[in-house]
């Protein structure tokens, strides 16, 4: 099964209980404004945050758990990987700290322990351990208004469309996360445009496919180059030999 979180921006009151719950469950430190921090509330100590937009709109920001995550595709050691349920999680035993995942993320989500001597990549892991224990993620449990809910991805997409259909004048006609970058597990329905959350709106390709083609042509390129070089060498050797023979004859 593929699980998901649906956040209804119209219902969020910005109480940040989800942030608190997340911090408690994962034992995260207090946040301090650091020079390397992006101004969206996410940090190595805050895996989710609430952004306020003009007119008292609150949008919860967290890892989108892409169905085809660019971070996992880019990680050279497979420290980031997708679980069966669909959560993109991080194995700090494997990580070597190259930060390619941070470069590759289309939403700019992963954060780094910049102040630590032994730094790790930090981001929402969709409480995958709680899911294994049969619990919901901490954030959806803590939400007092039901603005962010947890469930099966297909069901939540249907639920999103149902809400839009029921109140078309309230919502924009779009479930964010249904198609973006090949689909994400964190979905939004909203009354304001949420495109500002991504670096490039409307990017509907699964990012791993961009490098996949290049990576697939690696073995043929490797062998092809070897063969070309050997062939060239053979031809030139032969030509030089013939040249030498003819020069010998002339002498």
């Amino acid at each position: 099964m593929s699980i998901a979180i649906l956040t209804d921006v119209t219902k969020c009151i910005g109480c940040a209980e989800c942030v608190v719950a997340c911090k408690q469950v994962h034992g995260l430190d207090k946040d301090l404004p650091r020079v390397w921090q992006k101004n969206d509330g996410l940090s190595a100590c805050s895996w989710t945050s609430v952004i306020q937009r003009p007119g008292n709109h609150y949008i919860r920001k967290q890892c989108r758990h892409c169905l085809e995550p660019a971070c996992a595709a880019s990680c050279p050691v497979g420290a980031l990987h997708t679980t069966k349920s669909g959560a993109v999680i991080y194995d700090d035993q494997k990580c070597l700290g190259c930060r390619y995942c941070m470069t590759a993320c289309p939403y700019g989500i992963p954060r780094y322990d910049w102040d630590r001597r032994v730094p790790y990549v930090r981001k929402c892991i969709l409480c995958f351990e709680r899911l294994e224990r049969g619990l919901q993620p901490a954030c959806t449990t803590a939400c007092p208004t039901g603005a962010t809910i947890f469930g099966e991805r297909a069901e939540l997409i249907a639920e999103g469309h149902r809400r839009i259909k029921a109140e078309p004048e309230k919502y924009l006609n779009r479930v964010w996360g249904e198609h973006e970058v090949g689909g994400t597990s964190v979905l939004y329905v909203s009354d304001i445009d949420l495109d500002f959350m991504a670096y490039k709106p409307g990017l509907d390709i699964a990012l791993p496919t961009t490098t996949k083609k290049a990576m697939e042509s690696v073995p043929p390129a490797f062998l092809g180059m070897g063969a070309t070089m050997l062939g060239l060498n053979w031809i030139i050797k032969r030509r030089q030999k013939l040249q030498g023979q003819s020069e010998d004859k002339e002498d």
Partner: peptide, 25 residues
């Protein structure tokens, strides 16, 4: 603008919140 008063960068204090070990989905 006053509306920009930010919720981010908040130093969340250990607020005791009930019911995190809540019901299963």
């Amino acid at each position: 603008q006053p509306w920009k008063r930010r919720l981010n960068n908040h130093n969340i204090l250990p607020v005791v919140s009930a019911g995190i070990e809540g019901p299963t989905p």
